[in-house]
Design a protein around this nucleic acid. Structure first.
Lengths: 233, 233
DNA sequence: ACTAAAAACTGAAATTTTGCAGTTTTTTAT
DNA sequence: ATAAAAAACTGCAAAATTTCAGTTTTTAGT
């Protein structure tokens, strides 16, 4: 959080995380958790959580979309995955490290709740049901990341880009037609290839009638061919 | 478990997992867990856990080394990571799925405890301390896998192989000189490249004096150069 | 010890991917 | 509305990687 996000005079009464957590907590405990929760807005491009910083809050993403990005030793930036709201972020760090393993950056304007990690930890200590619920959140998120990375690690650029398009369409935008807020550079960091390769490949997909590409607006026209490319790698 | 591993008439009194877990359980609960634990041996090459099978036991690896491998839609096999004992395996699946996400295969002869997942779940429900301990095991394992995959996903073959050598030397064999039990084919599946590329690259590292390569015996001679290659990608 | 099979290796052509240099388009700020 | 900056795009040469075809070495079974 290094770009002074705006305080949000928000109504917090509807929030999936709170609704889930509430089941496991007494009225007092819930009030305590609620009082230690910050409501914030982030603009597109702002860091919600910064790699290497001290981990102080777990984040519930209420609206908007974010990317997980990792900066390696040489300063090269990599997009690990893109995540849609509503979702719990940062759980990875919760029970074994004080420092954030990667950054989380808004790729659209976002609304988030920042929940104090120490208060949450204290409550989890007293409440196995809540602990198990968190285990579920964390393992699900990790699994998605791993499946994503497996595809990236072991397919050619064609297949990787096909996978990214399929993922964005199905899981993130939930439509055949969507307007991405990631730049070509960010897509390259996601697919693990050069910018030029992303551009060439997308325009080839366009020419071959697999997608329709108009600047940031992408429509998937031929699911069969796209799945075929994903499968072949 | 599809190759009838041998029952092991083993002494189970020393086992790291049990020692950790014991702290959180009553004598009765521990006895119940103990009675629902199978002691087994697996030979090199045997599946300890098979991708897609129903997840019935969490696995504590007492001795030996294993690989996590993932078979994709086209039947191509990928090595996600290599894990050394003592370690808890299979936690990824514990709280959100019934099916194994990937296979775990012995790359050396192994001794394992199979702990009935339902008994463990019941105990976790009643015991937040134990739940948190498991959260720690699970998140640590996931983090290692992700860091591994990040390196694989976004470096060139030189850097990926350097990373694998560094990982095997530091984390798995804990020595500059080690005898791998992975074949060149498996190393290729690990580095996400062709067998020939692994062979070419390893013998180039050998020629350049970075490693000494004698069949399966690898000695790292020049850490400085190897780290440089890893860093540059 | 011998044979067959599997694994490791080699070199080279074909393919994929990157990096470069320059052009066009889009975005941002004044 | 306009200029400057950033992003998107294009084509090509260089580099990395795979694929193929064949040889040598190691392993396993009788």
């Amino acid at each position: 959080m290094n770009q002074e996000p705006n305080k949000m005079p928000s109504d917090c009464s509807f929030c999936l995380f709170k609704m889930v957590v509430r089941q496991y907590l007494s009225e007092d405990d819930f009030t305590q958790l609620y009082q230690n929760t910050l409501q914030l807005r982030f603009k597109k491009g702002e860091h919600i959580l910064k790699q290497g910083n001290i981990f102080t809050h777990i984040i519930f993403l209420k609206s908007g979309r974010v990317k997980f990005n990792f900066e390696d030793e040489t300063g090269r930036n990599l997009v690990l995955t893109v995540v849609n709201s509503p979702n719990l972020l940062g759980g990875a760090n919760m029970f074994n490290e004080d420092l954030n393993l990667f950054s989380i950056t808004a790729i659209e304007d976002c609304e988030v709740c920042l929940i104090d990690i120490n208060v949450l930890k204290r409550l989890v200590m007293q409440n196995a049901g809540l602990a198990i619920k968190l285990l579920e959140f964390v393992t699900t998120m990790f699994k998605d990341s791993i499946l994503n990375l497996v595809s990236l690690a072991h397919k050619h650029v064609n297949g990787r880009i096909a996978d990214i398009l399929i993922y964005l369409s199905r899981k993130i935008y939930k439509s055949d037609c969507f307007t991405i807020t990631l730049s070509r550079k960010e897509l390259a960091e996601y697919a693990g290839c050069s910018q030029e390769n992303i551009i060439h490949t997308l325009s080839r997909f366009d020419k071959e009638g697999i997608i329709s590409l108009k600047a940031k607006k992408i429509e998937i026209l031929d699911w069969h061919k796209l799945n075929e490319i994903s499968r072949k790698g």
